[in-house]
């Protein structure tokens, strides 16, 4: 347990030193990669609450990632074309303000998670995986066929959104924003795992009957977990859209859901820093192997296979040992 904390601290250190170096060496591309790591990690931290802590294998987290992305896309596209989103019954205008966009992304993805969760949490196991996947596909095809916001082509946002007091177009400043959000969410996630809610949720993953018979409604428990999980992944979606200044239906694909899950599995399921380590490894592999071949996913698949077969605790588990934190 102590060892895991040391490893987490080392990862944090590495993630702080690297951008400083890249900034000093004037390597904006590295900064962009690291920003991507932070955003993917954030999406993974979100899923890890449902999957790691709650044992809910959601194959539909692309829904929340995409909803967050489109929240940004829709608000910003209206702002850049100076056309209000709606005028009747009251006026809603677009915005380029990041805090407002984040709030909208969080609320709308939380609502989407409420909808998806309320229906899919009535099932479990393979059925749960399939229903969450089905929701993902529904959202995907809906955005493709919805011409108002670009349909298949997606939405292009010309400039990055604003954050008070910062120049978000400067890579290091946008990176700092993403890091800060990841830090806050990691802190929240660590507290959550040890809270009353976390204790009950993790207990329900181990034995549903046990938690029910001490008087805790496991359906409500899991639904709330799913909503928190979806909201965090939604926030990551908004940041990802801002990083690329582009949103498209590809955010809703089942491959996206799979990738978020891959971050967690590579890094370590239910480990606090699992998604961080996994996302970093993923982006690193994409960068290094992607240079060698367009089909770099072959190697990713191989790695994933090795992790699942020989290192169930992922990268963090491999380094910190099997024991999961108890205190």
């Amino acid at each position: 347990m102590q060892r895991e904390k040391v490893i987490n601290a080392l990862i944090t250190l590495l993630l702080v030193v690297m951008p400083l170096w890249a900034w000093w060496a004037d390597e904006p591309f590295i900064l962009t990669l690291l920003t991507k790591v932070a955003i993917f990690a954030l999406a993974g931290v979100g899923l890890n609450i449902a999957l790691g802590l709650g044992g809910l294998v959601s194959f539909g987290h692309a829904v929340f990632f995409g909803v967050g992305g489109y929240a940004m896309g829709i608000l910003a596209s209206h702002a850049q074309s100076y056309s209000p989103i709606m005028e009747i019954p009251f006026l809603i205008e677009g915005t380029k303000s990041m805090p407002v966009i984040w709030l909208v992304a969080i609320i709308s993805s939380a609502l989407a998670a409420l909808l998806v969760g309320a229906l899919s949490l009535r099932t479990s196991g393979v059925y749960f995986i399939m229903i969450t996947l089905a929701f993902g596909q529904m959202f995907f095809y809906f955005t493709i066929s919805w011409p108002a916001y670009g349909g298949e082509d997606g939405l292009l946002i010309y400039t990055r959104n604003h954050f008070p007091g910062m120049n978000t177009l400067d890579p290091i400043q946008f990176l700092i924003i993403c890091y800060a959000i990841l830090g806050v969410v990691l802190y929240f996630s660590a507290r959550l795992a040890k809270s009353a809610f976390g204790l009950a949720l993790n207990g329900a993953r181990q034995n549903t009957e046990r938690v029910l018979t001490v008087g805790i409604d496991t359906f409500r428990l899991r639904l709330v977990a799913f909503i928190i999980s979806g909201a965090i992944t939604g926030l990551a979606g908004a940041l990802f859209a801002d990083l690329n200044r582009f949103v498209s239906p590809s955010m809703f694909t089942w491959q996206t859901s799979g990738e978020i899950m891959v971050f967690i599995i590579l890094g370590g399921v239910a480990r606090l820093y699992g998604p961080v380590a996994g996302a970093a490894l993923f982006v690193f592999l994409e960068y290094v192997l992607g240079d060698l071949s367009d089909y770099w996913h072959i190697y990713l698949g191989l790695l994933l296979l090795l992790v699942v077969l020989f290192a169930r605790g992922g990268l963090i588990g491999l380094l910190a040992g099997r024991e999961v934190a108890h205190d």
């Binding site: 507290r191 009353a196 207990g203 008087g215 428990l221």
Partner: peptide, 21 residues
């Protein structure tokens, strides 16, 4: 942890997200 879970269920305030149980 198992008995604390029981005590928690009996007290009924499971939706607390920050305070360590």
């Amino acid at each position: 942890q198992n008995v604390v879970l029981g005590a928690l269920g009996a007290r009924g305030d499971v939706f607390r997200f920050l305070k360590p149980a």
